[in-house]
Structures are given as structure tokens and as C-alpha cells.
Amino acid sequence: MTHQPSTTLKRRPSRRVCTPPNLILALFVAAAVAAPVLAPQNPYDPLQIFGWEASSPPGTIGSGGYHYLLGTDGLGRDIASCILYGLRISLMVSIVSALAAAAIGLTVGVTAAYFGKWVDAIIMRVVDLQLSLPTMLVALIAIVTLGPGVDRIILALIIVQWATYARVVRSVALSEAGKPYIDAARTMPLSNARIVLRHLLPNSIAPAITLLPIEIGHAVALEATLSFLGLGVPMDQPSLGSTVANGFQYLLTGQYWISLFPGFALFGLIAAINFAGEDIRRIWDPRNRSI
């Protein structure tokens, strides 16, 4: 008797989509998308910025009729608007790069596990090499060789991230590949490509989905670091991370709001992504679908 009542009757996790983390994340995404409408000021339009109002504390009413709810930064830009615009770039860069890295890592990891032997050996040694280089170094080299620009940043982040997915996915795919449903597919025989993509990949995706939000969080942080070093997104498209970096020097002189509020936004965004990731994994699993 393999199924004991205690396991078969275990409460199924709910498949509610409107959980608090999901709603908060949706709010962030909506804010990012609607930034041009929501933001009182376009912080990257010099005509809307008043330099003499630089470093105003939160709540100041500015001369342009702006109400600087969260204060202004060292150049006189409205922090609230910077956050909204920064969200756009941060979310776009990190989501696109994490998704692309996940797709590459998944395919590579599953392929390695399915074919085994020398295919596996070669792929996994490349992964090991990639993972033994410091992340920042790989990103820096990539940026330096590829040049600046949002698309290059995305490419650099993909190069940095894919190996993690490949390694995590491979270990799960190895155990899945040993199951009889894969044997059944092989005896049919289905093509290797179909077995890998239709059978092995969807069943090995769980760790990648768990990893995805964490890696999106990493991508946001990594992109912020690169921006801080002046190697990130260009100045006319600043991200949430570079906005935090902008205010870093002012922290010492007590102008906390410049870094702090974008920092909160960054924290809230990453936390919402992490919590929502658990829900996404749960919803994905067909074992949680009711009859």
C-alpha cells in the first residue's frame, strides 16, 4: 500500500491567484508600465527639472507646481518620479535577462541530463567554469567587450545567469530521465528533440521557476551595481539601482531620502517577486489542479 490516507487526503494548496504578494507585484508592474502617466515629473527631461531645488526634503512644494512627495535628489529630480521610471528599466532588464537565461539554462541542463555521457561532461564542465568565475568579473568583461547600452546589459546578465539554471535543472532532469515515462517515449520511439522538449523539460522546470524570482532579484541588484560603476544602463535611461547609487554619497550628509526611498522600492519589488515566485510554482504544478 503506497498511498496512505495521510498523503492522499493532505490538504491541497489553494490555487488562488489574488494572493497579497501577487497583488503587490502586480501593483509594481502596473506602476512601471504607467510611469509616464503617474509620475508628476519626467525626471529625465531637463526642462522639467529645477536645479535650485536640489536635495529638497520630502514634502517640499516646488516652484514648478510639483509636490515633491519623497523629496528631490542632488540634481533636483523628483524622487517619486525617479522611482517610477527606474522601475520600468529595472523590471524590463531583469525580467528579460532572467527569462532568457532560464530558457537557455533549462534547455542546456535538460539536454545534458538526457544525453548523458560526453555531452553531459562537456556541458557541465563549461557550466562549472562559468560558475567558478566571479559574477561581477564576467559581467564586467561582457560589458567591456560588448559596449554600453540596455541590450548589452541584458546580454551580460544572461551570460552571467544561465549556468545556475543549467546546473539546478540538470540534477532534477537526471532523476526524471530515469523514470519509465521517458523510457516509454524512447521505445515508441519519439525523436530525441520531442522527448527533451515535450516530456523532460516541463517536468524539470520546477527548480528553474523557484530560481527565477531569486535570479530576477539578483539581476536587479547586479544591474544596479554595474550602473553604480558607471558600466550600467546609460544616464538617459536610469534604473532603480542607479537611482539608489545616485544618492549614496548624500547618505553621509543626512539626505537619506535620495537613496532610502528607491531602496525601499527595490526591496519591496524583490520581496514581492520572491513571494510571488512560490505562488507561480504552485499554480504551474498540475498535481495541484483539481478535477
Partner: peptide, 23 residues
């Protein structure tokens, strides 16, 4: 696949739970 027996012999396995793709 050409010279082998693959495809001309089908198997039924012991554990039906893991013999079907859960997705």
C-alpha cells in the same frame, strides 16, 4: 534507431504512477 529493436517492441512498466508524464 535503424538497426535496433526500438519501436518494434513496447513495454509496460512496473510502476504506473511514474510511467505516465504527469503534465
Amino acid at each position: 534507431r535503424s538497426g535496433g529493436l526500438l519501436g518494434r517492441i513496447q513495454m509496460v512498466f512496473q510502476d504506473p504512477a511514474s510511467s505516465l508524464n504527469p503534465r
